[in-house]
């Protein structure tokens, strides 16, 4: 899930030119779960803009559970279902993550866009009211060696070989209310009786796998990951 949070209203308004006609787009999946751009927030945003004197030609949100970052669906939604409204608009205000923003650009063949949200992280939906980050999408997963907990993400410094000396009572030096990632890893490995794994040297990350932009292509049972580390193809069957 891509966590997003709405930009402040004055920033959204400041980004619109005088007289600019806007169509508001939301996402029925992640942004809906974040309450930043589901159907109710999308409709509400249209009203909030109108109350501030902005001309809103209409608004649309993908169906409940359907992501805005699916190009085929967005094409149909904007170019067929809401054709009349989108044709009148000068631009799209997107209440979704950066992937959603680009999907709208692709769907509208380069339509003008405004980001209505800040995209903040990829996270686990722990419950309806709480999402938190456990992975930084580094392209080379090492949690096999850390009891399933990611030090790249849970340690404020992304240290791979054990804790710095900054934790007090298991809380991180950057914020004494936040768990030290390495304390969590240590506790977990000890619980599992696998503390010996903490003694293994973990080599520096291959940051070229973390280079952006990256892509993934699927062909039958094969998938190819492309990054500055090159192309890497795997087969998902024997």
């Amino acid at each position: 899930m891509h966590a997003t949070i709405q930009k402040p209203m004055n920033e959204i308004i400041d980004n619109l030119k005088a007289g600019e006609k806007v169509f508001v787009v939301g996402c029925g999946n992640c942004a809906a779960k974040c309450h930043s751009g589901g159907e109710p927030e999308t409709k509400e945003m249209a009203e909030r803009l109108r109350r501030r004197g902005v001309t809103v030609t209409g608004c649309a949100c993908t169906d409940n559970g359907v992501s805005l970052c699916k190009l085929a669906i967005v094409k149909k939604m904007l170019n067929e279902t809401y054709k009349a409204e989108t044709e009148q608009a000068d631009s799209f205000l997107i209440l979704a993550c950066g992937q959603g923003i680009h999907t709208v650009m692709d769907a509208t063949e380069g339509g003008a866009v405004h980001a209505g949200c800040d995209t903040i992280f990829g996270g686990e939906t722990v419950n309806d009211d709480y999402i938190t980050e456990y992975c930084s999408l580094c392209g080379e997963c090492i949690v096999e060696k850390t009891g399933g907990l990611c030090p790249v993400t849970l340690c404020a410094k992304g240290l791979l070989n054990g804790p710095c000396g900054g934790a007090i009572n298991g809380k991180c030096e950057v914020d004494r209310n936040r768990d030290c990632g390495w304390q969590l890893i240590y506790d977990r490995l000890r619980e599992l009786g696998r503390l010996d794994e903490m003694a293994e040297y973990i080599t520096p990350k291959n940051n070229s796998k973390w280079s952006r932009p990256r892509s993934l292509s699927m062909s039958g049972s094969k998938a190819t990951f492309k990054s500055l580390a090159g192309e890497h193809t795997v087969s998902n069957v024997d």
Partner: peptide, 12 residues
């Protein structure tokens, strides 16, 4: 924050 290497890796 950079931390491209950690202290163990830097020693290496």
């Amino acid at each position: 924050p950079v931390y491209d290497l950690d202290s163990v890796q830097l020693l290496h």
